[in-house]
Design a protein around this nucleic acid. Structure first.
Lengths: 375, 375
DNA sequence: TCGCAAGCCTGAACCGGTTTAGAGCTCTCA
DNA sequence: TGAGAGCTCTAAACCGGTTCAGGCTTGCGA
């Protein structure tokens, strides 16, 4: 009885099917299916015989056939609505995807990725993913106010997990409560902003500016609100906020604008690291010393943050863990029909060198023109 | 005759199938299939009637059923063998993927993405993608010497496109010529390195170092050879090369090592931008002025390059266009069974501020303090 | 007028699984 | 002893397309 190992598929002629296994085990193909999906109604002996036959033949059920009869695709989708530049600048997605993959791969699930430039293409993509039955569920990132994707996914009946808790959905006929029906996996990012402001205020900064992300994005406006709250709590005068689109270029432009004012801020809180790094560059270009003349904090703790000069004081997030948690939640949702919301540990401030005590504490900003103030 | 637009699927009950269309058009389902895939043997009238029926019912053929009977998946795969950190630091893949997507989406093809940490997982992933019939072809990036993926893909019979021309395959039984059977889409990256060295030499640099990528990667060793050649052509003494793994951290460490020598280089050519940016940080930290005390060039022209200080002189590559070209080539390969190699325009040097004339031309390292040379 | 080819079309097999109705058997309990 | 329950298992339908063998018309040349 030569038990050939699975690897020996020998004849490249025809792939082995469930029928081959059934014949070899001397049962019907239906029973093979039952055994494989370990469902009740198969005697232990038969089950063993069937599994052995499958092993010997090196048989794996055809995903395609399974897909057709079960109407599932065993794949999850991620649609990223960003321009290539925005995507490239921000390491969030690569890390997030790596986290997702680390959960999906062992489960035999694949990830279908789409990158689309605008909202119209984004919605169209969800529609076609569903129409083609490409995916069984999707990840929803970069939540926006009154996000059109949520009613769309409800309409399409596609399971989803949101990265963060959606808010500001206007109630619709289908969704009178205005609440998202999808589980949310969230990381509190307000604490990091709060800590940043507290830290800066504690160092003696009185004029702190905020280079915010797009207010149409939930995390953009949330961080902005956290900033305002923290500023108020710290008893600082009103502090300036500039809204951007989260892009590097916008971060540079905002920094330039802030620093060219009569009374420039002595510290800037950036809503993400790429903008903070651009801000660092602008400050250097203007001849400012960091953190002497200007303190800078970022958000995300991207890989670069540690290696720019001075190393960026920033808020550390963990996109890979977020990806893992989101993937697990989505799988659970699909398996049990529901899954609880999940809150990951809040993002905390990581202190490095880009923020420090201002050279002159409160009075006025150091003169900007010449690089060296007095000395 | 109410022609309901496709969008009106009304009854969410049962999805429309090819049978519904056949009935409505008064033909057999076989003929519908023929008409849809416009194959000969369908009269113009029938074809028109069938397409109209399909339109009226808003019918799209089921991808799953098509997959089962045609044994195709209408999806392409990309397996990225990088750690999350490496992936996140380098915007190559996001841009590349965006380019790929821009070609795939209109064709109704999807992209299946896998991120794996090591070579073993990488090879396993290709195997399971094929076993599951998830993809009809794959992109092969980050080519290595004697790349094990090439014989594997040949064995699996999976169409592929290589990013760059593979070399150094040892001949095997199946592949006695040792040549890759897959079309290659390449960008000459040696010109950029050559230009970098020429540019630096032209500015008066005599001691130019190279922080190279991993020599096990084809582009790593190719850039290194280009560097050596260019150095020789410029008549410079032997120049130092440090091999790294392309990571930011390694770039920083290499820079530190180079600059701590008795006779440090006056210019460093980095094999990618993340390392160059880290180099910039180290130089600043050591109190060096750039480009007065140290000139730096990078490779790739990532988004950050323009916004660091000083803006990075680097070699511009176009990953998105590479992605487009690779996707088109892969589609052509799958359609016609073969596709020609394609060479994209060579990457060229983009001059910004991070490289300049050394403060003191040849003799020794310049004094570090002042930033303005003479003017 | 017949034979034959070409064009159009149908019916059925097929892809490789899942699922369901029900057959056959054994066991239990009245 | 016989009805009914419970278990194991089979056969066949089904998912929704593609593909192929062959049937029916029609037209043309012999």
């Amino acid at each position: 009885m030569s038990l050939k190992p699975a690897a020996v598929k020998a004849a490249p002629g025809k792939p082995v099917t469930i029928m081959d296994v059934a014949k070899r085990a001397g049962v019907s193909k239906g029973l093979v299916s039952f055994a494989l999906n370990d469902r009740p109604g198969v005697s232990p002996e038969s089950r063993e015989r069937i599994l052995a036959a499958a092993r010997e033949l090196g048989w794996t059920p055809s995903l395609r056939a399974r897909s057709l009869s079960t109407k599932r695709s065993f794949a999850l989708g991620l649609v990223v609505g960003r321009t290539p530049e925005m995507l490239g600048a921000d390491p969030f997605f690569p890390s997030f995807i790596a986290g997702v993959e680390s959960v999906l791969a062992p489960e035999g699930r694949a990830l279908v990725l789409s990158v689309v430039p605008d909202e119209e293409a984004e919605l169209r993509t969800y529609r076609s993913l569903v129409a083609d039955g490409r995916v069984d569920g999707v990840f929803l990132s970069d939540l926006r106010h009154n996000d059109p994707r949520i009613p769309l996914l409800m309409e399409l009946g596609l399971p989803a997990v949101t990265l963060g808790r959606p808010e500001g959905l206007s109630p619709t006929e289908q969704n009178p409560s205005g609440r998202s029906p999808f589980p949310a996996v969230s990381i509190d990012d307000t604490l990091g902003i709060t800590e940043s402001v507290q830290y800066l205020a504690g160092l003696g900064h009185r004029r702190i500016a905020h280079v915010a992300g797009s207010a149409s994005m939930l995390h953009g406006s949330r961080r902005r609100i956290a900033f305002d709250d923290a500023v108020r709590a710290a008893g600082l005068a009103e502090c300036q906020t500039i809204e951007t689109d989260f892009s590097i270029g916008a971060g540079a432009a905002a920094t330039r604008r802030l620093l060219s004012q009569d009374e420039p801020p002595s510290a800037i809180v950036f809503a993400n690291d790429p903008m903070a790094i651009a801000g660092l560059g602008v400050a250097h270009e203007l001849g400012l010393t960091i953190p002497g003349d200007l303190s800078i904090t970022g958000f995300d703790d991207i890989n670069f943050a540690r290696y720019v000069y001075p190393p960026l004081t920033t808020v550390r997030t963990t996109p890979a863990q977020w990806g893992q948690a989101a993937a697990r939640t989505l799988l659970a949702l699909m398996e049990h029909g529901s899954a609880p919301d999940l809150d990951l540990p809040a993002a905390r401030l990581t202190v490095r060198g880009s923020a420090g005590a201002p050279v002159r504490s409160a009075s006025g900003a150091a003169s900007v023109a010449g690089s060296e103030p007095s000395r």
